[in-house]
Design a protein around this nucleic acid. Structure first.
Length: 570
RNA sequence: GGCGGUAUAGCUCAGUUGGUUAGAGCAGCGGAAUCAUAAUCCGCGUGUCCGGGGUUCAAGUCCCUGUACCGCCA
């Protein structure tokens, strides 16, 4: 049996993510994981918070907390919200875990032994008042080009000129405001990606089936200008994984930590160890080591396009470069951006809807359905409240929810709350089963190839088929002359509800669960055989009429939310 | 400035290796039905497929070029 290792890009720790972040990695990854589990595949679905780096330190300072405490808290917050969205991670780890410390240091040592790490001395701005080196963007000053007074150290926001922090007139730290800055020499480790260029290129060239978005970004970095550049993998910071060469100290690198982009992807592996250490699994190596059983694993990564370079180049350079038998990624599913009502979602400006706010407004299924059925696969896509209201009301409330309602209520009034007995299937029923079989196979194809929007479209068509059938069969009029036949029709329709619950579970897990409960069954077997799947609920099987499965979003609510989320987040 | 992505019906989007009258959902209009969350079902599209060249018997689909938006890099 094929096994699936699935990872979602790691969300950064410094705050709650918005819907654009969610739909770009975690949500489609969850869809795929749930689908594969539903098909009976063995799945290990991992995600973790990415916790190191300057932004985390600054956010902690702002919150007045030690950075360790801050990260621990925010990890819990993010884990709780992920749970709220029903993201079914087998483990939600932390890049700051001891497992990741050890593994990151191991990789660094191994790469150094193989000559893939160099030590480079360079000059960086040091702030005496802050007691730390400052990344370029944390230094501001007057632009030498246009005179703009808060130009950043990497680029002037006013005239867009690219700058070096030393170019700025009257530079100051944006952290403390201090002007007491000086250039200091500091030594850093560089991953010699340039040495790996050919190997990476050959590897990428074998991935002809990857989305063009993924390979074009990788090829650009491999071939742009002077080709793939070496990359600094250490920083002068306190918060991070201490630089070590395996278990040994690294002379000259005291007090430094690995750069977040070196240690974060390694957490994909460490997370599997955390999963075992948390008592949830027993053998992480059979997922990650090709010499220990991972040969039959299919590894799929999900991420937004901004993360593609690290996953196609930096991380592969790390694991391929180690010359150890690590499992490399088989397929990278990347996404474009989701825009918000004519502009971008913005974490810093609080524009758009954030994950916690979304759940305060509506249950997870509503968001999951809209986001997945509008996933930005081929290009950037856009969230508008009108579209959200329309899609959710039409698809979930009218097409699916109302189908359940009309079937169960009709049955209750004519036959009582149990699957009716008698009658036989005729041509209409056969035609429906044929159509469903075709559509379900198409749905399976789209789901396995991670065509998210097409999957949603097909699933919706499957829901619609049920309404079409009812309309053609018209049990409400048949009942007047031939109650037995009406019974057969309704028996089929009730079975459709169970079938829909099973098929829809990856998209709308809560509703799926509620429908199965109403149908009084825990049979979630996949409909490999559609006719058989439509006879699971036998004559006489008791059920209950469920509460409204999906309520509608009113115009008032939509207008209210529209204004509420237009501006700043409090 | 370099590179990449995208530009298809009012809206959101499909359009495989170029091949018959360019499609779907929503919205809109008309009708049917009345079991149901005023839900459902059926019917209705004269769209410079961003502009301009070119290749071809044939281009939304390939090439060149221009424009717009988005992103990455410098």
């Amino acid at each position: 049996m094929a096994r699936h290792l699935i990872t979602s890009a790691l969300p950064y720790i410094n705050g709650i993510k918005h819907l654009g972040n969610l739909v770009g990695s975690q949500l489609p990854a969850d869809l795929f994981a749930r689908y594969m589990r539903g098909r009976g595949r063995e799945v290990l679905f991992l995600c973790a918070t990415d916790e190191h780096g300057t932004p985390a330190e600054l956010a902690a300072t702002k919150a007045g907390k030690p950075v360790e405490d801050y990260c621990a808290e925010l990890h819990e917050v993010q884990a709780r919200i992920a749970d709220g969205f029903r993201l079914s991670f087998d483990h939600y780890g932390r890049s700051s875990s001891p497992q990741n410390h050890a593994l990151t240091q191991h990789f660094a040592g191994r790469l150094a032994d193989l000559g893939l790490i160099s030590e480079v001395t360079e000059k960086q701005m040091y702030s005496n008042a802050d007691g730390r080196f400052l990344p370029d963007r944390y230094i501001e000053g007057t632009c030498p080009n246009c005179g703009f007074e808060s130009a950043r150290g990497d680029q002037c926001d006013n005239c867009t000129k690219q700058l070096d922090p030393t170019d700025l007139i009257n530079p100051y730290s944006t952290i403390s405001g201090s002007t007491d800055l000086e250039e200091r020499e500091t030594k850093h480790l560089f991953l010699r990606q340039s040495e790996m260029r050919e190997k990476l290129q050959n590897w990428i060239d074998t991935k002809a089936d990857w989305p063009i978005l993924t390979t074009s970004i990788a090829n650009k970095w491999l071939n742009d200008g002077d080709g793939l550049q070496d990359r600094g993998i250490t920083r002068d910071l306190d918060w991070g994984i201490p630089v070590k060469r395996g278990a040994e100290d690294w002379p000259g690198m005291e007090g430094k930590v690995f750069y977040v982009w070196f240690d974060a992807p390694i957490e994909y592996i460490a997370c599997a160890q955390e999963w075992v250490d948390a008592g949830k699994g027993s053998d992480w190596e059979r997922w990650w080591r090709t010499d220990k059983g991972a040969d039959d694993v299919t590894y799929t990564q999900f991420m937004g396009k901004d993360n593609v370079p690290f996953h196609t180049l930096s991380f592969p350079a790390t694991i391929l470069g180690s010359q150890e038998p690590w499992k490399a990624v088989d397929y990278i599913k990347s996404f474009n951006y989701l825009n918000y009502d004519g502009g971008q979602f913005s974490t810093s400006r609080g524009r758009g809807v954030f994950m916690d706010q979304a759940l305060e407004i509506l249950p997870a299924d509503y968001w999951r359905w809209w986001l997945l059925s509008h996933a930005p696969e081929s290009s950037d896509s856009e969230f508008t409240w009108e579209n959200f209201q329309q899609s959710v009301n039409k698809d979930l409330a009218d097409v699916l929810g109302n189908f359940v309602s009309r079937v169960t209520k009709f049955c209750r009034s004519k036959f009582g709350e149990e699957v009716p007995t008698g009658g036989a299937f005729g041509e209409t029923e056969t035609a429906l089963i044929t159509e469903l079989t075709t559509r379900i196979r198409a749905y399976e194809d789209h789901m396995s190839s991670m065509e998210v929007r097409k999957s949603a479209q097909e699933l919706r068509a499957i829901w619609v088929a049920g309404n079409e059938y009812l309309q053609n069969a018209a049990p409400w009029s048949v009942f007047k002359t031939d109650p037995e036949q009406a019974a057969a029709q309704i028996r089929l329709a009730l079975n459709l509800i169970r079938l829909y619950a099973v098929l829809s579970a990856p998209f709308i897990p809560d509703a799926s669960k509620a429908l199965l409960a109403a149908m009084n069954t825990d049979d979630t077997s996949w409909p490999d055989n559609v006719p058989a799947a439509l006879e699971v609920l036998k004559p006489g099987h008791a059920f209950t009429v469920p509460d409204v499965t999906f309520r509608k979003i009113s115009d008032e609510e939509r207008e209210d939310w529209q204004t509420r989320f237009a501006g700043k987040r409090d």
